[in-house]
């Protein structure tokens, strides 16, 4: 069992209790909406043949996470797999596959919590799929050097995005102070991401040698529209812009968040519609906090739903 502790890329699997209820709920809302789209897309695009494929691919990602390589001084590089899954399976399938991986890890192995599963899916499944597929899609049709370079950069950025999102969630939950969590998480993952990039490129090159038809340019382009490139590039830019700022200047981040009314005492929820997240009628109780959370969550849900509708409409327009 000790071995399993050391040998797992556990840094990003948040357990229950580390995120505040509101952060966990907001993450769930984002994930549920995106999953809704992914499930719908899979009905359109995938036939029953894909189900065994996606199930076995989920098992593959799980098993591939066992493969490590010694780096130096007893530490070893690990593989998370989100970006590779997005490149070889396409974005919607990768989201479903990574969701299942995170779900089984939580339900079967307690690797990551149940209530915070939404956050874990977002960090390890959805951001990685957006960046992995979005960036690689942009390089489809280019030379091998460009494509492998892009795949490596996408894998590295996907890990950084996961680390950044995890840090933000921990910080907004009041679990970790900004001045520690951002530098610690981001610096560690700069190196972990490097290992991820190398393995992703190595695996991609191997697959292209053995089964070229699975990762041909047409196949890659066929799996998603150009809107994915925009989404991937925008998220990558956000990661690139926020990460150095957050790790070098966490006080600044704290100030920005306070100016925007994002955090109260640094440990409250990400927004403040109700004073102290309670509904006056219900008094200062757990139930009241939950009720306030539900209203806030409904609001976020509406906004994301509208955005997703727009994104998927653009995409459909291009395909026809």
């Amino acid at each position: 069992m000790l071995l399993s502790i050391i040998n797992k890329p556990a840094e990003l699997h948040i357990p229950d209790g580390f995120l505040s209820t509101i952060v966990a709920l907001v993450s769930w809302v984002i994930v549920i909406i995106l999953l809704g789209f992914a499930v719908n897309k899979s009905k359109e695009k995938l036939n029953e043949r894909q189900i065994p494929l996606m199930g076995i691919m989920a098992a593959f990602i799980f098993a591939a996470q066992m493969i490590n390589f010694p780096v130096a001084g007893g530490t070893s590089g690990h593989f998370l797999g989100g970006a590779l899954a997005a490149i070889i399976l396409g974005p919607w399938a990768a989201i479903l596959v990574m969701t299942s991986v995170v779900g089984v890890q939580a339900l079967l192995f307690q690797d990551g919590g149940l209530l915070v599963m939404g956050a874990n899916i977002l960090n390890m499944g959805i951001l990685t799929a957006l960046i992995g597929y979005g960036l690689y899609r942009a390089s489809a049709g280019k030379s091998k050097l460009v494509r492998y370079g892009t795949a490596g950069a996408a894998a590295w950025l996907a890990v950084m995005a996961g680390a950044l999102a995890t840090s933000i969630q921990l910080w907004l939950s009041g679990t970790s102070p900004a001045q520690f969590v951002f530098p610690a998480m981001l610096y560690v993952h700069v190196i972990i991401g490097f290992g991820e990039a190398l393995i992703t490129v190595g695996a991609l090159a191997f697959i292209e040698r053995v089964r070229p038809e699975l990762v041909s340019d047409e196949t890659v382009k066929d799996r998603g529209g150009k809107a994915w490139i925009i989404a991937g590039v925008v998220i990558s830019l956000l990661v690139v812009l926020i990460s150095p700022f957050a790790s070098a200047n966490p006080d600044g981040l704290e100030r920005v968040a306070e100016d925007l009314n994002f955090i109260g005492a640094g440990m409250d929820a990400p927004y403040e519609i109700f004073p102290d997240y309670t509904i006056p009628l219900l008094g200062d109780s757990g139930a009241s906090t939950i009720a306030a959370g539900v209203v806030g969550v409904a609001f976020v849900m509406l906004i994301i739903f509208i955005i997703m509708r727009l994104v998927s409409n653009i995409k459909l327009g291009e395909e026809s």
Binding site: I56, A59, F60, A64, I67, N68, F79, F206, I207
Partner: peptide, 16 residues
């Protein structure tokens, strides 16, 4: 890392 990458690729092809 390249060896590990080949192993992941190998595992993928076998799984597929």
């Amino acid at each position: 890392a390249k060896v590990a990458g080949n192993m992941v690729g190998q595992l993928f092809v076998r799984s597929y």
